[in-house]
Protein backbone atom coordinates (compact mmCIF):
# COMPACT_ATOMS: atom_id res chain seq x y z
CA UNK A 1 0.00 0.00 0.00
CA UNK A 2 2.73 2.38 0.99
CA UNK A 3 4.68 1.60 -2.14
CA UNK A 4 1.55 2.17 -4.13
CA UNK A 5 1.18 5.55 -2.52
CA UNK A 6 4.78 6.39 -3.24
CA UNK A 7 4.87 5.18 -6.78
CA UNK A 8 1.38 5.71 -8.03
CA UNK A 9 -0.61 8.04 -5.80
CA UNK A 10 1.23 11.17 -6.84
CA UNK A 11 0.70 10.20 -10.43
CA UNK A 12 -3.03 9.95 -9.96
CA UNK A 13 -3.19 13.12 -7.90
CA UNK A 14 -1.22 15.12 -10.47
CA UNK A 15 -3.03 13.75 -13.46
CA UNK A 16 -6.47 14.15 -11.95
CA UNK A 17 -5.84 17.77 -11.04
CA UNK A 18 -4.56 18.53 -14.54
CA UNK A 19 -7.57 16.72 -15.98
CA UNK A 20 -9.84 18.99 -13.97
CA UNK A 21 -7.90 21.97 -15.27
CA UNK A 22 -8.46 20.67 -18.81
CA UNK A 23 -12.11 19.97 -18.36
CA UNK A 24 -13.14 23.13 -16.54
CA UNK A 25 -13.46 25.43 -19.57
CA UNK A 26 -14.78 22.62 -21.72
CA UNK A 27 -17.59 22.08 -19.27
CA UNK A 28 -18.59 25.70 -19.72
CA UNK A 29 -18.58 25.22 -23.50
CA UNK A 30 -20.96 22.31 -23.05
CA UNK A 31 -23.29 24.37 -20.86
CA UNK A 32 -23.22 27.21 -23.37
CA UNK A 33 -24.15 24.83 -26.16
CA UNK A 34 -27.40 24.07 -24.33
CA UNK A 35 -28.18 27.74 -23.83
CA UNK A 36 -30.73 29.09 -26.29
CA UNK A 37 -29.99 32.81 -25.79
CA UNK A 38 -26.79 32.54 -27.75
CA UNK A 39 -24.44 33.93 -25.14
CA UNK A 40 -21.69 32.19 -23.24
CA UNK A 41 -22.84 30.90 -19.88
CA UNK A 42 -19.95 31.67 -17.65
CA UNK A 43 -21.37 32.60 -14.32
CA UNK A 44 -22.61 29.35 -12.92
CA UNK A 45 -21.80 25.69 -13.03
CA UNK A 46 -25.37 24.58 -13.00
CA UNK A 47 -26.97 24.78 -16.43
CA UNK A 48 -30.02 27.01 -16.19
CA UNK A 49 -31.65 25.45 -19.19
CA UNK A 50 -31.11 22.42 -21.36
CA UNK A 51 -32.11 23.38 -24.86
CA UNK A 52 -31.16 21.42 -27.92
CA UNK A 53 -32.00 24.33 -30.20
CA UNK A 54 -28.35 24.89 -31.13
CA UNK A 55 -27.76 21.26 -32.03
CA UNK A 56 -31.01 21.08 -33.96
CA UNK A 57 -30.02 24.19 -35.85
CA UNK A 58 -26.74 22.65 -36.96
CA UNK A 59 -28.35 19.54 -38.34
CA UNK A 60 -31.76 20.70 -39.49
CA UNK A 61 -31.31 24.19 -40.86
CA UNK A 62 -30.81 23.86 -44.63
CA UNK A 63 -28.86 27.13 -44.61
CA UNK A 64 -26.22 25.55 -42.35
CA UNK A 65 -24.60 22.58 -44.11
CA UNK A 66 -22.76 21.49 -40.99
CA UNK A 67 -22.10 17.96 -42.17
CA UNK A 68 -20.59 19.28 -45.41
CA UNK A 69 -18.33 21.55 -43.40
CA UNK A 70 -17.30 18.61 -41.31
CA UNK A 71 -16.50 16.57 -44.41
CA UNK A 72 -14.52 19.47 -45.87
CA UNK A 73 -12.50 19.82 -42.69
CA UNK A 74 -11.73 16.13 -42.62
CA UNK A 75 -10.68 16.15 -46.27
CA UNK A 76 -8.54 19.27 -46.09
CA UNK A 77 -6.94 18.43 -42.75
CA UNK A 78 -6.49 14.79 -43.72
CA UNK A 79 -4.88 15.60 -47.04
CA UNK A 80 -2.64 18.23 -45.43
CA UNK A 81 -1.57 15.82 -42.73
CA UNK A 82 -0.73 12.98 -45.10
CA UNK A 83 0.91 15.02 -47.85
CA UNK A 84 2.87 17.33 -45.60
CA UNK A 85 4.27 14.44 -43.63
CA UNK A 86 5.11 12.49 -46.77
CA UNK A 87 6.92 15.44 -48.29
CA UNK A 88 8.38 16.60 -45.00
CA UNK A 89 9.73 13.25 -43.96
CA UNK A 90 11.73 12.96 -47.18
CA UNK A 91 13.39 16.28 -46.41
CA UNK A 92 13.88 15.35 -42.77
CA UNK A 93 15.55 12.13 -43.82
CA UNK A 94 17.90 14.01 -46.10
CA UNK A 95 18.77 16.52 -43.41
CA UNK A 96 19.36 13.80 -40.91
CA UNK A 97 21.15 11.21 -42.96
CA UNK A 98 22.61 12.50 -46.20
CA UNK A 99 25.86 14.36 -46.44
CA UNK A 100 25.76 17.34 -48.75
CA UNK A 101 27.01 20.86 -48.97
CA UNK A 102 24.97 23.49 -47.21
CA UNK A 103 23.14 21.09 -44.94
CA UNK A 104 23.69 23.17 -41.84
CA UNK A 105 22.78 26.38 -43.62
CA UNK A 106 19.73 24.68 -45.07
CA UNK A 107 18.34 23.59 -41.75
CA UNK A 108 19.05 26.98 -40.22
CA UNK A 109 17.26 28.69 -43.08
CA UNK A 110 14.33 26.38 -42.60
CA UNK A 111 14.07 27.33 -38.96
CA UNK A 112 14.43 31.03 -39.68
CA UNK A 113 11.81 31.09 -42.41
CA UNK A 114 9.12 29.88 -40.05
CA UNK A 115 9.96 32.64 -37.61
CA UNK A 116 8.76 35.32 -39.94
CA UNK A 117 5.53 36.77 -38.57
CA UNK A 118 3.36 35.04 -41.12
CA UNK A 119 0.22 36.99 -40.37
CA UNK A 120 1.67 39.99 -42.15
CA UNK A 121 2.47 37.95 -45.22
CA UNK A 122 -1.19 36.94 -45.57
CA UNK A 123 -1.90 39.89 -47.85
CA UNK A 124 0.77 38.67 -50.23
CA UNK A 125 -0.51 35.09 -50.13
CA UNK A 126 -3.96 36.39 -50.91
CA UNK A 127 -2.74 38.28 -53.95
CA UNK A 128 -0.83 35.25 -55.21
CA UNK A 129 -3.87 33.00 -54.95
CA UNK A 130 -6.04 35.68 -56.52
CA UNK A 131 -3.70 35.73 -59.53
CA UNK A 132 -3.67 31.95 -59.71
CA UNK A 133 -7.45 32.10 -59.73
CA UNK A 134 -7.47 34.16 -62.92
CA UNK A 135 -5.89 31.39 -64.94
CA UNK A 136 -6.62 28.27 -62.91
CA UNK A 137 -9.92 28.73 -61.06
CA UNK A 138 -9.79 25.19 -59.71
CA UNK A 139 -6.70 25.74 -57.57
CA UNK A 140 -6.87 29.46 -56.87
CA UNK A 141 -8.69 31.61 -54.39
CA UNK A 142 -11.76 30.06 -52.86
CA UNK A 143 -10.81 26.46 -53.48
CA UNK A 144 -9.87 23.78 -51.04
CA UNK A 145 -7.06 22.69 -53.34
CA UNK A 146 -5.54 26.15 -53.18
CA UNK A 147 -5.84 26.26 -49.42
CA UNK A 148 -4.26 22.83 -49.24
CA UNK A 149 -1.24 24.10 -51.19
CA UNK A 150 -0.85 27.04 -48.81
CA UNK A 151 -1.12 24.76 -45.80
CA UNK A 152 1.47 22.41 -47.29
CA UNK A 153 3.87 25.28 -47.83
CA UNK A 154 3.30 26.60 -44.35
CA UNK A 155 3.61 23.21 -42.71
CA UNK A 156 6.92 22.33 -44.32
CA UNK A 157 9.14 24.20 -41.90
CA UNK A 158 7.50 22.90 -38.74
CA UNK A 159 7.12 19.34 -39.91
CA UNK A 160 10.64 18.99 -41.17
CA UNK A 161 11.90 20.23 -37.83
CA UNK A 162 9.64 17.96 -35.87
CA UNK A 163 10.47 14.93 -37.97
CA UNK A 164 14.16 15.62 -38.05
CA UNK A 165 14.26 15.54 -34.26
CA UNK A 166 12.80 12.05 -34.26
CA UNK A 167 14.77 10.78 -37.23
CA UNK A 168 17.93 11.74 -35.39
CA UNK A 169 16.88 9.43 -32.58
CA UNK A 170 16.67 6.43 -34.91
CA UNK A 171 20.01 4.64 -34.68
CA UNK A 172 22.25 5.11 -37.66
CA UNK A 173 23.54 1.53 -37.51
CA UNK A 174 20.51 0.31 -39.40
CA UNK A 175 20.81 2.44 -42.45
CA UNK A 176 24.57 2.22 -42.41
CA UNK A 177 24.20 -1.54 -42.61
CA UNK A 178 21.90 -1.10 -45.55
CA UNK A 179 24.39 1.15 -47.23
CA UNK A 180 27.06 -1.51 -46.89
CA UNK A 181 24.66 -3.95 -48.51
CA UNK A 182 24.69 -1.64 -51.50
CA UNK A 183 21.34 0.08 -51.06
CA UNK A 184 20.97 3.55 -52.55
CA UNK A 185 19.73 6.46 -50.49
CA UNK A 186 16.29 6.22 -52.05
CA UNK A 187 16.08 2.51 -51.24
CA UNK A 188 17.27 3.06 -47.70
CA UNK A 189 14.56 5.66 -47.30
CA UNK A 190 11.72 3.49 -48.56
CA UNK A 191 12.77 0.11 -47.28
CA UNK A 192 14.49 0.80 -43.98
CA UNK A 193 13.59 4.23 -42.80
CA UNK A 194 9.90 4.41 -43.61
CA UNK A 195 8.84 1.27 -41.71
CA UNK A 196 10.88 2.39 -38.71
CA UNK A 197 9.52 5.88 -38.77
CA UNK A 198 5.88 4.97 -39.33
CA UNK A 199 4.82 5.60 -35.70
CA UNK A 200 6.62 8.93 -35.65
CA UNK A 201 4.95 9.88 -38.88
CA UNK A 202 1.62 9.01 -37.35
CA UNK A 203 2.26 11.40 -34.46
CA UNK A 204 3.36 14.23 -36.68
CA UNK A 205 0.41 13.62 -38.99
CA UNK A 206 -1.92 13.83 -36.04
CA UNK A 207 -0.40 17.09 -34.82
CA UNK A 208 -0.59 18.45 -38.33
CA UNK A 209 -4.17 17.25 -38.68
CA UNK A 210 -5.26 18.96 -35.47
CA UNK A 211 -3.47 22.15 -36.37
CA UNK A 212 -5.09 22.29 -39.79
CA UNK A 213 -8.50 21.29 -38.52
CA UNK A 214 -8.56 24.27 -36.16
CA UNK A 215 -6.99 26.83 -38.47
CA UNK A 216 -9.35 29.67 -39.33
CA UNK A 217 -7.47 32.85 -40.24
CA UNK A 218 -6.44 31.64 -43.69
CA UNK A 219 -9.42 29.40 -44.17
CA UNK A 220 -11.98 32.15 -43.67
CA UNK A 221 -10.23 34.29 -46.25
CA UNK A 222 -9.94 31.55 -48.81
CA UNK A 223 -13.03 29.41 -48.40
CA UNK A 224 -15.96 31.68 -48.98
CA UNK A 225 -18.61 29.49 -50.58
CA UNK A 226 -20.96 27.99 -48.05
CA UNK A 227 -20.44 24.52 -49.47
CA UNK A 228 -16.66 24.66 -49.44
CA UNK A 229 -16.17 25.97 -45.91
CA UNK A 230 -14.45 24.04 -43.19
CA UNK A 231 -15.99 23.70 -39.75
CA UNK A 232 -13.77 26.39 -38.26
CA UNK A 233 -14.88 28.86 -40.92
CA UNK A 234 -18.49 27.80 -41.04
CA UNK A 235 -18.96 28.24 -37.32
CA UNK A 236 -17.39 31.70 -37.47
CA UNK A 237 -20.56 32.87 -39.09
CA UNK A 238 -22.21 32.83 -35.70
CA UNK A 239 -19.76 34.93 -33.84
CA UNK A 240 -18.45 38.05 -35.43
CA UNK A 241 -21.61 39.54 -36.94
CA UNK A 242 -21.36 43.25 -37.45
CA UNK A 243 -22.51 44.00 -33.93
CA UNK A 244 -23.62 40.67 -32.59
CA UNK A 245 -22.51 37.25 -31.53
CA UNK A 246 -24.38 33.99 -31.29
CA UNK A 247 -22.32 31.62 -29.23
CA UNK A 248 -24.76 28.76 -28.82
CA UNK A 249 -24.41 27.11 -32.22
CA UNK A 250 -20.70 27.89 -32.20
CA UNK A 251 -20.26 26.01 -28.94
CA UNK A 252 -22.39 23.11 -30.11
CA UNK A 253 -20.51 22.93 -33.40
CA UNK A 254 -17.13 23.07 -31.68
CA UNK A 255 -18.04 20.21 -29.40
CA UNK A 256 -19.10 18.01 -32.28
CA UNK A 257 -16.05 19.06 -34.30
CA UNK A 258 -13.65 17.96 -31.60
CA UNK A 259 -15.12 14.46 -31.60
CA UNK A 260 -13.23 13.22 -34.68
CA UNK A 261 -9.97 14.52 -33.27
CA UNK A 262 -10.52 12.70 -30.01
CA UNK A 263 -11.45 9.54 -31.91
CA UNK A 264 -8.37 9.75 -34.09
CA UNK A 265 -6.25 10.37 -31.06
CA UNK A 266 -7.71 7.42 -29.22
CA UNK A 267 -7.27 5.09 -32.15
CA UNK A 268 -3.69 6.22 -32.69
CA UNK A 269 -2.91 6.30 -28.99
CA UNK A 270 -0.89 3.09 -29.15
CA UNK A 271 1.21 4.48 -31.98
CA UNK A 272 1.62 7.83 -30.42
CA UNK A 273 3.03 6.78 -27.13
CA UNK A 274 4.21 3.21 -27.34
CA UNK A 275 4.85 3.15 -31.04
CA UNK A 276 7.82 5.42 -30.74
CA UNK A 277 9.78 2.61 -29.16
CA UNK A 278 9.92 1.06 -32.61
CA UNK A 279 12.59 3.59 -33.32
CA UNK A 280 14.79 2.41 -30.48
CA UNK A 281 17.80 0.18 -30.79
CA UNK A 282 15.79 -2.97 -30.38
CA UNK A 283 13.79 -2.28 -33.52
Amino acid sequence: MITWLRTNAWRHALVISVCLFSLFPLYLVVISSFNSTGSLRLDSFIPREISFANYKMLFNDPAIPYLTWMKNSLVVAGATAILSVTIGSASAFAFSRLAFKGRKTGIQMLLLVQMFPAILAISAVYVIMERVYTFAPSIGLGTQAGLLLIYLGGAMGVNIWLLKGFVDSIPKELDEAAKIDGASAVQTYWLIFMPLAAPVLAVVSLLSFIGTFNEFILARLFLVDMESRTVAVGLQQFIGGQYSENWGPFAAGSIIASVPIVIIFLSLQKYIVNGLTAGSVKG
Partner: peptide
Amino acid sequence: KSFSNFDALKDAFDKA
Protein backbone atom coordinates in the same frame (compact mmCIF):
# COMPACT_ATOMS: atom_id res chain seq x y z
CA LYS B 1 -20.73 35.71 -52.19
CA SER B 2 -21.35 35.36 -48.46
CA PHE B 3 -18.39 35.48 -46.12
CA SER B 4 -18.46 33.61 -42.87
CA ASN B 5 -18.72 36.80 -40.86
CA PHE B 6 -18.35 40.54 -41.00
CA ASP B 7 -14.66 40.59 -40.10
CA ALA B 8 -13.86 38.00 -42.74
CA LEU B 9 -15.67 40.14 -45.30
CA LYS B 10 -13.67 43.20 -44.30
CA ASP B 11 -10.39 41.26 -44.34
CA ALA B 12 -11.08 39.95 -47.81
CA PHE B 13 -12.21 43.31 -49.15
CA ASP B 14 -9.08 44.96 -47.73
CA LYS B 15 -6.93 42.48 -49.62
CA ALA B 16 -8.92 42.02 -52.82
